[in-house]
Amino acid sequence: MEKLTIEQTVVTSKQKIGNTTLKEPWLIRLILTTISLLFLLIFLVLPLVTIFITAFKKGLDVYIASITEPDALSAIKLTLLVAVIAVPINTLFGIAAAWAITKFNFRGKNLLTTLIDLPFAVSPVIAGLVFILLFGAEGLFGDLLSNYNVQIIFSLPGIILASLFVTVPFVARELIPLMQTQGTQEEEASISLGAGALTTFLKVTLPNIKWGLLYGVILCNARVMGEFGAVSVVSGHIRGLTNTMPLHIEVLYNEYQFSAAFAVASLMSLLALFTIIIKNIIEWRTKQ
């Protein structure tokens, strides 16, 4: 999503030097900025503030206790484990899919792109359900799995599969428009100069797409960690074993431990804010 930063600075400097006709009257700018800020305030900031206020309502002790108790810790561990496995797989997929779609011409491209988008549009409830229909005891592979005593649903593999399903489009979606605008000339030049396929990818393509790639990975990671609906269907909700952080939050909330629930939720929001900060730091560094 982050475009070439050089280009960006060129654009902004041009605007600064360039004629004032490219700018809106200050009143319009003020109104537009105010609208944006108000909208974000009402829809994003206030919910976030609610989470933090409720989290600290009963004091710092309760906050720390609720994120360090064994069930919470195992939920955090499980969530991280799922992310560590699911994100690289979908990153690899995203790169492969974007490469095929943007560097070559073939029939059925629209269909393929739509297929990649589809998980965005599939209800999380359905996303979980289909894996139960597939791997559940009554499902298509149910007998096969129970014969070999392999458990997929209601344990780690099921949670990973559901997370993979939900986040398939994230990396690919970021890369496709980016690589489309970049065309194929640079790579073609590199190949015709005798560079190997891998070298071309690493030296020519990767530097061009790294921001989009990073951004896609960050979003994919955030969604993997935050997925609730699909994972809830396949997890089995066993405390300390198959509860991810979002599920643990629901458990706490249902136990009337609102502060504890929001404490874990605030931890997840911090995680989100943290990745955003990292993104900005990397951006700033490359600009230097």
């Binding site: 989470i51 999380p124 979003l219 955030a222 969604r223 979002p246 909330y253 989100a272 993104k279």
Partner: peptide, 18 residues
């Protein structure tokens, strides 16, 4: 950065907060 929050926040948490 805030714009990405809905992607990152678990939907149940968002629902409860809203």
């Amino acid at each position: 950065g805030l714009v990405d929050l809905p992607f990152a926040l678990p939907t149940a948490v968002a629902g409860i907060a809203l």
